[in-house]
Measured scan of single mutants.
Amino acid sequence: MDETGKELVLALYDYQEKSPREVTMKKGDILTLLNSTNKDWWKVEVKITVNGKTYERQGFVPAAYVKKL
C-alpha cells in the first residue's frame, strides 16, 4: 500500500496499450490499483513525468501482467 492506503501492483512485464482505455507500463513499474474485480483486466493509475511535470492516467492492464504488493 502507498502512503494514502491505496493498494499497489508491480508490473511483471512490459505492456503497450492497444486502446485508449488501456495504459502502457514497463516491467518493474509500480502502479496504483483502483479495481481488481475483473479477473482478466485490472484498472490502475500510472504516473507519467513529461518535461518535469507529473501526470496521472487511469486505464486497464492485463491482470496476469501485474502482481499485488
Rank of each mutant, 00 (worst) to 15 (best):
L31G: 05
K18N: 10
K43C: 10
K47D: 08
M25H: 00
A63V: 06
T37S: 14
L33F: 03
W41D: 01
D29N: 05
K26H: 09
V46E: 04
V61L: 02
K18G: 08
N38W: 06
L8I: 08
L69M: 10
T54N: 14
T32H: 08
P62F: 02
F60Q: 03
F60P: 00
Y65P: 00
P62H: 02
V9F: 04
M25G: 00
D14A: 06
E3I: 13
A64Q: 12
E45Y: 07
K68E: 06
K39H: 15
T24A: 07
Y15H: 04
E17P: 15
N38D: 15
E7P: 10
K47H: 12
Q58Y: 08
P62Y: 02
W41G: 00
G59L: 03
L10V: 14
V44R: 00
L12H: 02
L8F: 09
S19Q: 07
D40V: 12
K18A: 10
T32M: 10
Q58E: 11
D14I: 01
E17S: 14
G59R: 01
L10H: 04
E22L: 04
P20Y: 08
F60G: 01
T54D: 12
V66Y: 01
W42G: 01
G5E: 13
V9W: 04
K6M: 11
L33V: 06
M1W: 14
N35C: 09
P20W: 07
V23R: 00
N38P: 03
E22W: 02
Y15T: 01
M25T: 03
T54F: 10
Y65Q: 05
E56R: 15
G5F: 12
K18S: 12
D29T: 06
G59A: 03
E7A: 08
K47T: 15
L69W: 09
V50Y: 15
K67A: 10
V61Q: 00
V44Q: 00
A11P: 02
E56M: 15
P20F: 07
L10S: 05
V9S: 02
K18C: 08
N35M: 09
K43F: 14
M25P: 00
L12N: 03
T4S: 12
L69F: 11
S19K: 09
E17Q: 12
Q58M: 08
K6H: 11
Y55K: 08
V23I: 15
Y65C: 09
V61S: 00
F60N: 04
T24S: 15
K43G: 05
T54M: 13
K39M: 12
S36D: 14
A64K: 14
L31P: 01
T32K: 13
T24Y: 03
F60V: 07
P62Q: 02
L33S: 01
P62G: 01
D2S: 13
W42V: 06
Y15V: 01
V66D: 00
D29F: 02
E7Y: 13
K26S: 10
W41S: 02
E56F: 15
T24R: 05
G28K: 02
D29Y: 04
T32I: 14
E3A: 15
L69Q: 06
T24D: 04
V9N: 00
E56V: 15
I48G: 06
A11D: 00
K6I: 11
P20N: 09
E3V: 13
V61D: 00
N38Q: 09
L10T: 07
V46L: 13
S36Q: 14
A11G: 03
L69N: 04
K18F: 04
K53N: 13
E22T: 06
L31T: 01
V23S: 02
A11I: 02
K67P: 01
P20Q: 10
V46G: 07
D14C: 04
N51C: 09
K39V: 11
L33H: 01
M1T: 15
D14K: 03
L8D: 04
V44E: 00
V9Q: 00
A63P: 04
L69S: 03
T49I: 15
K43D: 03
A63D: 01
A11C: 09
K67S: 10
E3T: 15
K53F: 10
L12Q: 05
Y65M: 11
M1Y: 08
K68S: 09
D40A: 10
V61P: 00
T4C: 12
A63L: 01
M1G: 15
V61T: 01
G59I: 03
K67L: 14
I30R: 05
A64N: 15
G28P: 00
W42D: 00
W41T: 02
S19A: 07
L8W: 11
S19R: 07
T49F: 12
W41H: 03
F60I: 07
L33D: 00
V66M: 05
A64Y: 08
K68C: 07
Q16I: 15
G59E: 01
G52S: 06
N38M: 08
Y13A: 09
P20R: 09
K43T: 07
V50M: 13
E45S: 13
K53V: 12
L31R: 00
M25N: 01
D14W: 03
Y13W: 12
L69G: 03
W42K: 01
L12T: 04
D2P: 15
K26M: 10
V9T: 02
L34H: 05
V44A: 01
E45L: 11
T37Q: 12
K27Q: 10
W42E: 01
F60M: 09
D40G: 08
K67M: 11
E56A: 09
V23L: 11
D14L: 02
S36V: 06
D2M: 11
Q58F: 06
D2C: 11
A11M: 02
P62I: 02
W41R: 03
A11F: 01
L8E: 08
T37C: 11
I30T: 06
K67R: 13
D29P: 00
E45H: 07
A11L: 02
S36I: 05
N51P: 06
K26E: 07
T4A: 11
V46M: 09
S36A: 11
Y55F: 13
V46I: 14
K68A: 07
K47G: 06
D2H: 13
K39S: 13
G59D: 00
M25C: 05
P20G: 08
A63E: 03
T32V: 15
T37E: 13
M1H: 14
T54G: 08
N35S: 14
A64L: 15
I48F: 12
K18R: 13
R57H: 07
G5K: 13
D2G: 15
M25A: 02
E17I: 05
Y13H: 12
N35D: 15
V66E: 00
Q58T: 12
T37W: 08
E7L: 12
R21G: 14
L12K: 04
A63G: 03
I48Y: 15
D40W: 15
V23Q: 02
D2W: 07
Y65I: 06
Y13N: 09
K6Y: 11
Y55A: 07
V61M: 01
T37L: 11
E45A: 15
G52C: 08
V50L: 12
L8A: 06
V66K: 00
S36K: 07
S36L: 04
L33M: 03
Q16F: 15
N51V: 06
E45P: 00
L12W: 03
T54W: 09
K43W: 11
N38L: 11
T54R: 08
D14Q: 03
W42C: 04
T24P: 07
L8N: 05
N35A: 10
E22H: 06
E7G: 11
V9C: 09
T54C: 10
N38G: 10
L12V: 08
